[in-house]
């Protein structure tokens, strides 16, 4: 039962299948098996949030799920946000508000913010700060991130 098994997920709308040992983390399955390296791994114990993806439409830590648990699930990652060459509005706002520097936390920030805005309407700044505390950024000091999410929440498509 430690043998590899086949895992099929719908990633960013596309069905993808790979082999995974039961112990393989979803983050590693996405990155190493499916080659989707936009999802980053910063701590592997659920604190930093860099690996956050959407599982069946809700933000979750991909380092705290086994790949086999995602069999049959719909996964959305940062690679699926843009519409062709056009950046998603939140991506544009991150650039506008200088909400990224090294870019390592950015995928987790984006996926967390999208879920947060959908989860809770009429976010106050304090709620944004608390909600975005789910992801650590070591570069920016968060101001740009909070501003980008606030602008998105105030006028963003939900």
């Amino acid at each position: 039962m430690t043998a590899k098994r086949s895992v099929t997920v719908t990633v960013n709308g596309e069905a993808r299948t790979g082999e995974a040992e039961p112990r393989m983390l979803l983050s590693d399955f996405l990155r190493e098996t499916l080659g989707l390296t936009g999802t980053h791994v910063g701590c592997e114990h659920g604190i930093c949030g860099a690996c956050t993806v959407h599982v069946d439409g809700e933000a979750a830590r991909s380092c705290l799920m086994l790949a086999v648990q995602a069999d049959g699930a719909e996964i959305d990652t940062v690679e699926g946000l843009a519409d062709g060459e056009t950046l998603h509005r939140l991506q544009q706002l991150f650039s506008k508000h200088r909400a990224l520097q090294c870019g390592f936390c950015t995928p987790g920030m984006l996926m967390t913010a999208l879920d947060l805005v959908r989860h809770r309407p009429n976010l106050t700044e304090a709620e944004i700060r608390s909600g975005m505390a789910a992801v650590l950024c070591r570069c920016t000091g968060y101001e740009g991130i909070v501003h980008a999410v606030a602008e998105y929440a105030s006028g963003g498509e939900r």
Binding site: G46, V55, A60, T112, D115, H119, A134
Partner: peptide, 9 residues
């Protein structure tokens, strides 16, 4: 309890 993405699971 932690943060929203943790409460998801």
């Amino acid at each position: 309890v932690a943060h929203l993405p943790i409460r998801t699971r």
